[in-house]
């Protein structure tokens, strides 16, 4: 055993020393907080210094009995649904358009990506003014000039704010995703299109038979990445609708419970639930990537 260790370190020591700083940082900033969170979720916690009795799953039972938590969970699923409906195809469409542009392609590419350069809070603050319910909101001013009554954009009953919040997220994020699709589009050999044209394929068939099969792997990967990102929606509803229960997200209630209400144990339990869900999604993502790599190889 000792001999094995000696041989192992003798052979690999340099490599492990290079790796060490990353492992330390990774352990310190990722794994230790995760473990600590898991630990706290099973205890009665007064504050971070005063950890009381082991309570098994009591904190989990409490959060699942909390209507707002359940509502936030359902809202988050709605965010994901709406983001797939509104946000998933926009970058593909934009990439196709930019790819077809003959002139000023660079300008279009940059312009569409500009919202992504704006800090998230500032970008959302812009939308706060667009969606203001008062007459002086940007959208309501436009409506007023058209002789249409003002609209309570984010607070109309039976019409949740979630689609509009997703719209703002799409506006901000679509440009960056578009670049990935654009890069994939530009790898398509133009002879495929020429062959399709010769065979009499119209635009739709060229898209269906040449373009989409090329983009398909990217679409699968970006879809799951989008789901993971939207699952963590936080500051957009926080700024746009504050504490409206109809648009409350999982991370919002986690923040409220653990930080504002100082219920560290319940917050930790919520954190574990969110982590588990993200873990499953990440697992799916990795499976897709692995399959893609194998297919590529």
């Amino acid at each position: 055993m000792v001999g094995n260790l000696k041989r192992f370190f003798g052979k690999n020591l340099g490599g492990y020393l290079i790796m060490l700083p990353s492992v330390i940082l990774f352990a310190f900033f990722i794994w230790v907080p995760l473990l600590k969170n898991l630990h706290l979720s099973f205890f009665d916690v007064t504050n971070y210094d005063t950890i009381g009795d082991f309570v098994a799953f009591d904190n989990y039972k409490t959060i699942f009995a909390n209507d707002l938590f359940i509502r936030s969970l359902l809202n988050t699923l709605q965010y994901i649904g709406w983001s797939l409906l509104i946000g998933f195809f926009v970058p593909i469409f934009l990439a196709l358009l930019v790819n077809e542009a003959v002139h000023f392609k660079g300008i279009f590419r940059t312009a569409l990506n500009i919202p992504n350069f704006i800090p998230g809070i500032a970008a959302t603050a812009i939308w706060v003014y667009f969606f203001r319910s008062e007459q002086n909101g940007v959208l309501n001013s436009i409506l007023a000039n058209l002789g249409i009554d003002k609209v309570n954009w984010l607070y109309t009953p039976n019409w949740s704010a979630i689609p509009l919040i997703v719209l703002t997220m799409t506006w901000k994020g679509a440009g960056a995703t578009m670049l990935i699709y654009l890069a994939a589009l530009q790898t398509i050999d133009s002879t495929y299109y020429e062959a399709a044209r010769i065979e009499g394929a119209n635009m739709w068939w060229r898209l269906r038979l040449v373009t989409f099969p090329t983009l398909f792997q990217n679409m699968k990967t970006l879809l799951i990445l989008q789901v993971i990102a939207v699952f963590q929606v936080f500051y957009e509803p926080l700024m746009l609708t504050k504490q409206n229960p109809y648009s409350y997200s999982l991370l919002q209630i986690l923040y409220k419970t653990a930080i504002e209400d100082m219920k560290i144990d319940e917050g930790a339990a919520m954190g574990v639930i969110v982590s588990l869900m993200l873990f499953i999604l990440t697992f799916v993502y990795l499976r897709i990537v692995n399959r893609k790599q194998k297919a590529g190889a």
Binding site: L154, Q243, N244
Partner: peptide
């Protein structure tokens, strides 16, 4: 009342 129904 103000049109915005979520004021702090």
């Amino acid at each position: 009342l103000p049109a915005t129904p979520s004021l702090t």
